[in-house]
Each structure stands twice: as C-alpha cells, then as structure tokens.
Write a protein that binds this DNA or RNA. Structure first.
Length: 577
RNA sequence: GCGCUCUUAGCUCAACUGGAUAGAGUAUUUGACUUCGAAUCAAAAGGUUGGGGGUUCGAGUCCCUCAGAGCGCACCA
C-alpha cells in the first residue's frame, strides 16, 4: 500500500471533477505531466503537498491561490483528511488524521511481501552493459565502481518489474590483443626454458600471465610454436582470453556479481551485423565517403587528408561525423560497437543502459546517435558515467604504477574490506561525482562509516527482539493506535516514503538513493532509540504488553525495510555486531 | 584550440528532475551512559549553491556567458 500513489489517484479524480464542474477546457494529461504530490520539506506544512493550483494557473488565467481555494473543497472530501490549507505561492497542503499512519503500519504488516511492490517495468526487457573491462588482466580497484553501480542498478530494475539482462562486452580484438598474445608467448617460453624473461616495454608485465603460459604449456607441451604463425596466434589468443576471463569472472563473483551474457567483439566482427548496419544506414542515407576536418589545435600535426566511409552522426546531435573504416580497410572500433549495439537491440527488444567510466564521456553522443539511427528512435539508451574513485590510505593517496603492473586489484580490495562494505561505499555517491575510498575510514566502526551505521541500526532492531524474547516473524500487531508519540509517527511517515524512494531510484537509474534512504532511516531509528532514556518511550514496556507489542511491530518494520534496501544492493544484513 | 562532465557550509556530500526558510555527516562548542548495546543521541554555530546575466508565479536544478577542475579530441580500443 503506497499512500502517495493512493492520494495521487484521488487528486486526479478531483482534477477531473473540478474540470467538469467549472467546464474548463484544459487538457488533463498535460497537467498530469507536471503534477506532484510530495511530502513538504518542512513538516510544519502538513503531510503532503501538491503544486496542482500553480500548474493550472496559466491555463485558467487565474492566480494560483484562487484556484487552490476552489480545489481545497474537493480535497477536504478525500478520506482521512484532517486539514487542508493553501500556503506560499499556491501550494495545497494536506494534513491527515493520525490514524492513517497507524493504519498504514497495520496494513503493511499484513502485506509484508507486497506492500512496496512497484510495477514500473511491467516485464519490459532492459539490457544493462557494465564493466566490459579489457580481457588483458584481472580487474583492478578502479573497476569496482562501475561493477557495483551496474549490478545494483540491475538488481533495482529487477525489483521494480523489469526483465533485466546483465551483459559484459569482451573486447577480444584489436591491437591490445596482439600485445596480450605476445606477452603470453613470453610467459609460455618461460615455462619451456624455465628461465625468467624480461617483459619489454609496451607489453603486459603482470605476473598473472604466468598462469596463461602454464596453461599453454599444459595444453600444447613445447610444440606450440611449430605450427604456422596464424594458428599459433589463434591458439594463444583463445587460451589467454579464456584464462583471463576466468580470473575476471572470479573477481566479480567475489563482489557478488554474476553476468547473464558475455558477448565477444571478435564474434561481432566476423558476423553479418556489420553488413547489416551498413545496409540500414544506406537505406536512410546516413552514410557517405567524405573527408573529416582535422582536429583543431596541436594534435593536428599527424593528420592527413583522407577520404573515409563516414556515418552522419552529426545529424543525431553528435558534434562530428564518425569514421566507420580505418585506412587499412578494416572496421573502426566504433563501427564494430554500432554492430554490437544492433546485436543488443535485436536480442533485448527493449531499452539499453550502458555504464561507462568517466574517460569515455566523449564517446556517449556518437553511441546515442548510432542507437537512434539504427532503431528509428524507438530504443531508449541511457548512458551512466561513473566518475573516478580516489583510493586513499588514511587520507593519503595510494601509489600505483600501471607500467610496473603493481596496481591494487579488485580482489585485493574485496579481501581487505569485504564485499558488502565495498558495495555500499561505492553507492554512497551519485555515479557522476568522484568518490574517495579510504581504506581506513571504511573499516571504521563509527557513524563516519555509513555501512556500519546502517548495519548497527539493524543489529539494534534484532537486539530488541532478543531482549524482549519475542519472535520477530511471529509478531502480530494487536492495537496500532497505541503508536501515538510524534517520534513514532515521524518514523512511520518515513517508512511510507520507501516506495517513493524505490520509484525515484529506479526511474532515474540512481541506486545511490537507496543508500541515502537507509542512512536516514537508521538515523531516525537511532534517535528514537535514544529517546528511551529521557522521554520514556522505550520499546519494551514491561507493564504494558499491548504497547510493547505495538512498538515492537514498528521495530519489525524498520528491520524489514533495512533488509529490503540492503537486499536490493545485494548486501547481507548483520544481526549482531 | 574544440567538445563532454563537474563546481553546493572550513572539509566530504544530499536535495523527490522547476517548488516553500537549500539539508546530512565531519571538524568546532556544549550536553546525555543506574539503558532493550553511548560503536549512539540532543543542541548551538556554519550558505550570495564558483562569478555575472536571462527564461517564469518560482531556479542549486533550464538557457547564455566568464572562471576553475577532470576527461577526451581522424585512423587506437
């Protein structure tokens, strides 16, 4: 039962009645687009507030206050409304009779499984591509953010009724793979000769490739390089990728992540989809041979004038047209990526989400252009950019050298702080804001560490049940009206905001909202707990079983909501600290 | 040089996508343990939302402009 949704519907009914009573001609749908019903920032303004009068003002050519006073009459007739007043520039503020909140808790407890169920997705397919790290080595710490963000978003969208595909694009083609093969071969030769080989500049020096060398040796003995060059390359390539992807999958598993689909770039290139996109683009007259402008500024030195096959992405808001073929006649990365997006669209038959690192920001508009062009604008693509993570050790930046290969790996971080802490912290910032990850702080057991703070609130809930010797699961609320204290009502009102939070998070693809909600819920709960000291609103009142029962029910709802929020983020609740 | 993104309290960040007096944490000052766990809570103080202009009933949010930071800039991936 979602109180906000319920009263939003009442509001729509009232609007239609108002329209017909006064014979107005405004379009209800246009008004609905702008209509809000939300808790006012300041609780002095009541329980809910709507902007209805203000958005009608233009169509009706009347001042918002006059309209509000007319609407007030309708709203006063809504069930359980105690008071309606018009305030500020024309807000209509509604205050409910108190029993609406206690009834709400009572209903919630009778419908624990479904009270916050939202059907936003309605089973619609959505494909979310995230991580997609190059298969040239295990994941490093920097990958954690995109990985957790994408995974939490996938989980969130599943929760609200989408059919979600979690997808990883393997960049197993191109120059970097050649370097990888060269590096792997050196490690293979190490196996044969039993001598350490210096990895030259430009190749991958990481120790992890020793495992690739070993696997090659186990598979082919010392005869591998007797074959012709092409075949050797292919064998080494496939073993390298296989071994490294296995490492990556294990890293992800440690973070609680399991992808549904892995798509290979190489397969895209060798498939028919590239021809397909050319056909589509040709039929729309979006493709031509032309010469691009040289890049302005210092980099223009190496530029040479050349006619290329181009996609008119500038017609779709990109700032330049983009090359589809390289000078050697092979496809550009972008062309392949276009084909890959067509592949995703064909499989998904729904919308797409890409999660990228901040270093790919400049790439977004051309992919958007590609998707619009290929789908005739019928497929929505949302690209979420994850900003940088600064790894700190007690406030000081950690030193990493990519060249030497001694970066902090993702699995190092998970081993140090645990998957749940890492997941939560990665979501305590909006995705587009940079984030400080301080190894010392995230392990701290204090309010400064939000994971701990939320977990502590949950543990406290459980501690109350332990002390009261009441079984949380079997608890049945007897008399909700015993919840009277303003602080209890405040907590209930905040619980009522949970479905709204879920909805906002899901619609805007912003899982961080769940974290912030849980932190605030914990704060309200900790506060209520401490009220037990001076205001005599302890949860357990020994000579009043009915009151204890009511308060324990409230505690149960808090614990349930925290667990629900954490489960969406795929974090385990802690029962005892 | 061009483009994209960002700039909110001393510091780290929110702000229901255009709503009312911009909120938390931290640091500072002060107070609360005979308790169902003080790993917590309460209170004070802290702001021209980077500067300037515009759009409108109303702007941190949209548009323009300037400044600063990050990332990217034919053919790489």
């Amino acid at each position: 039962m979602n109180i906000y949704k319920l009263y939003f519907n009442y509001l729509i009914e009232a609007l239609e009645k108002f329209k017909s009573d006064f014979k107005y001609s405004f379009k209800v749908d246009d008004i609905l687009k702008k209509l809000t019903l939300e808790p006012p920032k300041n609780s002095i303004n009541g329980d809910m507030s709507t902007n209805l009068a203000m958005i009608l003002s233009k169509d009706l050519k009347l001042s918002p206050k006059i309209i509000a006073n007319h609407l007030k009459v309708y709203i006063l007739n809504f069930p359980d409304v105690a008071n309606v007043n018009v305030a500020g520039p024309g807000f209509i503020n509604i205050t409910f009779k108190q029993h609406i909140w206690t009834d709400f808790i009572s209903n919630l407890l009778q419908n624990i499984e479904n009270w916050d169920k939202l059907e936003i997705g309605n089973g619609k397919n959505i494909n979310i591509e995230y991580i997609s790290a190059n298969p040239t080595g295990p994941l490093h710490a920097g990958h954690a953010r995109g990985a957790v963000f994408g995974d939490a978003l996938a989980s969130l969208l599943t929760e609200v009724g989408y059919s979600v595909t979690r997808e990883y694009y393997i960049n197993d083609a191109g120059n970097q793979i050649e370097k990888l093969v060269d590096s792997s071969l050196l490690r293979y030769n190490e196996q044969i000769t039993n001598k350490t080989i210096d990895i030259p500049e430009g190749l991958y020096p990481g120790e992890y490739l020793k495992e690739v060398g070993k696997t090659l040796y186990e598979k082919y003995g010392d005869k591998l390089q007797l074959d012709d060059q092409k075949k050797v390359f292919e064998k080494v390539r496939s073993v390298s990728i296989e071994v490294i992807m296995e490492m990556i999958k294990n890293d992800l598993l440690k973070l609680g992540i399991k992808m549904d689909v892995f798509t290979s770039e190489k397969k895209i290139i060798s498939g028919h989809l590239l021809n397909e996109i050319i056909k589509i683009l040709e039929s729309k007259n979006l493709i031509f041979y032309g010469v691009l402008d040289p890049p302005k500024g210092a980099d223009a030195k190496n530029w040479e004038k050349r006619e290329q096959l181009l996609f008119k992405s500038s017609q779709y808001g990109d700032d330049a047209d983009r090359a589809l073929k390289k000078s050697d006649g092979t496809w550009t990365y972008f062309a392949t990526d276009m084909a890959y997006h067509l592949d995703k669209m064909n499989r998904t038959k729904g919308d797409l989400i890409n999660v990228l690192g901040a270093d790919h920001i400049g790439y977004i508009s051309r992919i958007n252009a590609a998707v619009s062009a290929l789908s005739n604008g019928s497929v929505e693509i949302d690209t979420k950019v994850c900003a940088l993570v600064n790894l700190l050790e007690d406030g000081k930046p950690m030193k990493m050298s990519k060249r030497k290969g001694n970066f902090v790996t993702l699995s190092d971080v998970v081993n140090a702080v645990g998957k749940d802490v890492l997941r939560f912290i990665m979501l305590t910032r909006r995705n587009d804001q940079s984030l400080d990850f301080d190894f010392k702080k995230v392990m701290e057991k204090s309010k400064e560490n939000p994971v701990f703070y939320v977990q502590y609130a949950h543990a406290r809930c459980k501690s109350i049940f332990r002390s009261s010797k009441v079984n949380e699961k079997e608890l049945i609320l007897k008399n909700p009206k015993r919840l009277k204290d303003v602080h209890e009502i405040e907590l209930i009102k905040f619980i009522a905001l949970w479905p709204r939070t879920l909805e906002l998070a899901a619609k805007n693809h912003e899982p961080h909202r769940i974290c912030y909600y849980l932190i605030e819920l914990s704060s309200i709960f900790h506060s209520l707990w401490n009220k037990g000291k001076d205001n005599n609103i302890k949860f357990i009142v020994e000579d009043d079983l009915e009151l204890t029962n009511a308060r324990l029910s409230l505690v149960k709802v808090v614990a349930l909501t925290i667990r629900k929020g954490l489960s969406i983020l795929k974090i385990e609740p802690i029962f005892e600290m």
